[in-house]
Each structure stands twice: as structure tokens, then as C-alpha cells.
């Protein structure tokens, strides 16, 4: 039990971050506005969570230009995918272990 709890990654503590990782895991690339739309959060909130995940090395940022407008898109890193998969597995394990008395 203790073991599994420890496997829950601190970086995925909030629901917004879980949603963020889920959206990035399911798409090759997403830009800031698409993420904002699908997660339904404010600019500041999203930016700070993205920053945090970027620091962990789970999210990579790609800056480019669409015409003259700067466009920032985000993708999941290999490390991020691994950590997220481990996190989901830990969640499933916790649910299973709690079902048993």
C-alpha cells in the first residue's frame, strides 16, 4: 500500500495537470488555445501548470510562427509518457487494493 502511494507522482497532484497530461498523451501536438479550450481553465492557471510540467521534463515546448503570429505548441516527452503511464497504473492498483478489505 505504502509502495503504491509513493508511485503516485507529485507532479500529477492536481486535476488540471492530470487533464493536461491526458490531452497531451492523446495528441501529437496541441497549442495553448486548444489546451485552454479543452481543459476549460484560465490563461494563468494553464501557463503555470505547463511551466511546472516543463520543469519536470514531461512537457516540451515548440515555438513557431503562423504567418506573423507566434504560435506555441506543446507535446509530451518520452519521460512524460512513461511517468504518466506509471501514474495511471498506480491509480488502478490503489483502486484494486482498496476494493479488497
Amino acid at each position: 500500500m505504502k509502495q503504491t502511494l509513493a508511485q503516485l507522482h507529485k507532479a500529477f497532484d492536481s486535476r488540471v495537470r492530470l487533464g493536461l497530461m491526458a490531452a497531451l498523451a492523446a495528441n501529437p501536438q496541441l497549442d495553448f488555445n486548444s489546451l485552454k479550450e479543452v481543459l476549460d481553465v484560465t490563461d494563468g492557471n494553464l501557463a503555470s501548470h505547463l511551466k511546472g510540467l516543463e520543469k519536470e521534463g514531461f512537457v516540451q515546448v515548440e515555438k513557431s510562427f503562423v504567418g506573423r503570429k507566434p504560435n506555441t505548441s506543446y507535446g509530451i516527452t518520452a519521460a512524460g509518457r512513461l511517468a504518466f503511464a506509471a501514474h495511471i497504473q498506480a491509480l488502478e492498483q490503489l483502486i484494486l487494493s482498496q476494493k479488497k478489505p
Binding site: L5, A23, S34, Q98
Partner: peptide, 23 residues
């Protein structure tokens, strides 16, 4: 400590987000 329902809700949120964002 979180309850079982929370973990359940987490997983559910992940699943729905993956679907909503990619489909």
C-alpha cells in the same frame, strides 16, 4: 489520504479528457 472515489474520478477524468481532446 485520498479516498477510492477520488482515484476513480481521477481515472475517469483522464479517460474523458483523452477522448474529448483527440476525438
Amino acid at each position: 489520504m485520498k479516498q477510492q472515489t477520488d482515484y476513480h474520478a481521477d481515472l475517469q477524468a483522464i479517460r474523458s479528457m483523452m477522448q474529448r481532446s483527440s476525438k
